[in-house]
Design a protein around this nucleic acid. Structure first.
Lengths: 349, 349
DNA sequence: TCGGGTCATGTGAACGTTCACAATTGTGGC
DNA sequence: GCCACAATTGTGAACGTTCACATGACCCGA
């Protein structure tokens, strides 16, 4: 045994302070490990004096419970997995932030896996496996595009799942901003300003969000008895918005454009400016998202505000409710969008 | 015991498929659990036929190893904690993305805690505690501001830490973009265009990054024998940039501004436009970051490009090296910035 | 004075892995 | 035909919690 001790010491590069465990606390406080456990978990039936002694011992040893061991015993990891697609876009990334903030309040840890459109089925599969192996208590999917739908199917059966900003049928709770209503709002606003029709720069066709915005736009036009002009599509990036804008400037009767997100709207503004077309004097532009920068575009962008932070928070709250087994969680939470009026929209020339 | 079985069944709301564990696989394959473990971890000395049988059994039972149990036994969680401050800014959030991508390649899980400037010492402390309890193998701090320095101190001693985009003294590895050089680059560019002097809109004074950019700007001016004009400060937001811009337009001899980030630069552009000052005809503007939108500002923004994705990747790689105990990890990794020339800078009027 | 309850605490067995150490079998050289 | 040694597999004890019970001590009403 002397030898063994020697070996141990030789192996230790630095004499690590060797984290205190529950048993150490118990010994120091003169109680059993179970009593310590009770104190930690706030069980009743612990005498005040004992509790104090235990807490004192915990402080003295700088004890921190080991979440791994706890998770193993309890079959709850208090960790929620987040599967995030296209996390480089404004929407998904701020939704993620909302989730994180809410998680911290609820004392849940968040394990994020960021996937992108280009990920192969294999890599998505592996990412999902990782979440499963970590035995997360549930998964939140920030999944605007359809690619995510596949990923969801690979999650272990019986694991609670919440979808954000998209719905994959009726088998899981969903938190969404009402895209349809938002698009209507924007389009109606332009029509009410007196524009004869409203053009649309859409997002990728395989994103439910993009489709819903198209639908809302169409509905508003239809309600006004106006035929819908052809759609120009982009990939959400400012660059693609610029490309779309270049195509639009060739349109003779163009006076109003509803762009499916702010970044593309920026590109459109750029293209219009380049073509010497004044905004809003000759063409009005309305965006979608209300990213913080939108207010300082040239001109300041009229846009539809989505409260991503709120979406994230709601998503996490719903998740926690599912985990806690209450049967009362909302099947669908709708966050209302709102129109933010700025300088980029005005009456037609 | 019959009773017990009955109780069990009564408790189960849905008959959950009861995740297979290593022992189940072992039984099905007719080997011991240890052999299964060996197969999973790719140990040598397992007969090919046995390995095949085990793999088959794993597939058949849809077995996934339990990372919690593994972590408990092995004292390695294969999880890295990320402490992110101001994750709503472009820089930190894209750095985070780089970390995540790299982590996935290295098969590490990422546990993120997003903190903001407003977080009280207490809430930061609790966040750090959470990471510690999860027994993360190490922590990466995306910590531009000084507030983070405190948090780092609370991490358990002996836990590997890497700081990104900031340095807290010499006790931990650091990955940074050379802010000083970037600022010099921008300032020199403007001077070389013929501007007599260059004004500066700086970030908050308690951010090392902001200070380094100020230093680089000053150094470039000094090298040209030009006295530095007074600094205008913002908080990185476009709004604060706009406010700074409004103050700048009052300056009579203003011909060139170096703004400490792109979002503030957007605000400055807005203010200049509002005041009827042409860019770059009358005033040149250079930003910092090169966010994707910068190319589509009006006019397209000349800026200093930081490769945040690379910073994140390097940070994670360094972290993994530290965890693996190789003594060869870099104490400081410098990522070089580069100047991106666009339309917002030109010769003075 | 006795039973039946709640309070306060302790004991040992899970949870699902890996680790340290056997134990058993096969292989090649002499 | 025997020995040293490697290859292959198995056994039981960790890892640090919580859970299910068991055990006393105490209190209250009959």
């Amino acid at each position: 045994m002397q030898d063994h001790a020697g070996y141990d010491q030789a192996m230790k590069r630095e004499p690590k302070p060797a984290r205190a465990v529950m048993h150490d606390v118990a010994r120091l406080a003169g109680v059993s490990h179970q009593t310590v456990s009770r104190v930690i978990n706030g069980h009743p039936h612990v005498r005040e004096a004992t509790r104090a002694r235990v807490l004192q011992a915990m402080r003295q040893l700088d004890y921190r419970p080991n979440a791994l061991a706890r998770g193993l015993a309890t079959r709850r990891s208090r960790t929620i997995g987040v599967l995030s697609f296209d996390a480089d876009l404004y929407g998904p990334s701020s939704t993620l932030l909302g989730i994180q903030r809410a998680a911290r309040e609820e004392q849940y840890a968040i394990s994020v896996v960021a996937l992108s459109e280009q990920d192969t089925t294999g890599s998505v599969r592996r990412a999902v496996d990782m979440l499963a192996e970590q035995s997360v208590d549930g998964a939140i999917v920030i999944a605007p595009s359809n690619a995510a739908a596949h990923a969801v199917r690979d999650l272990p059966r019986g694991m609670p799942v919440v979808a954000l900003e998209a719905s994959f049928g009726k088998d899981m709770p969903v938190v969404v901003v009402d895209q349809f209503a938002g698009a209507e709002l924007a389009t109606r606003h332009l029509l009410e300003l007196g524009h004869r029709t409203v053009w649309h720069v859409a997002g990728p066709a395989d994103w439910p969000e993009a489709v819903l915005r198209i639908d809302g736009w169409r509905a508003a036009l239809a309600a006004a008895g106006v035929p819908a002009p052809p759609i120009v599509s982009g990939d959400w990036s400012a660059r693609s918005g610029y490309a779309a804008g270049r195509r639009l400037v060739a349109t003779p009767d163009l006076t109003a454009v509803f762009v499916a997100n702010d970044q593309m709207a920026l590109g459109v503004l750029h293209a219009l400016h380049e073509a010497g077309i004044g905004v809003p004097e000759r063409v009005s532009v309305v965006g979608f998202d209300d990213m913080p920068e939108a207010e300082f575009f040239l001109p300041a962008l009229t846009t539809v505000r989505q409260d991503f932070d709120e979406v994230g928070r709601c998503g996490l709250r719903t998740m926690v409710e599912m985990i806690d087994g209450s049967e009362t969680f909302a099947a669908e939470t709708r966050v209302a969008p709102s129109l933010v009026l700025r300088a980029s929209s005005g009456p037609p020339p």
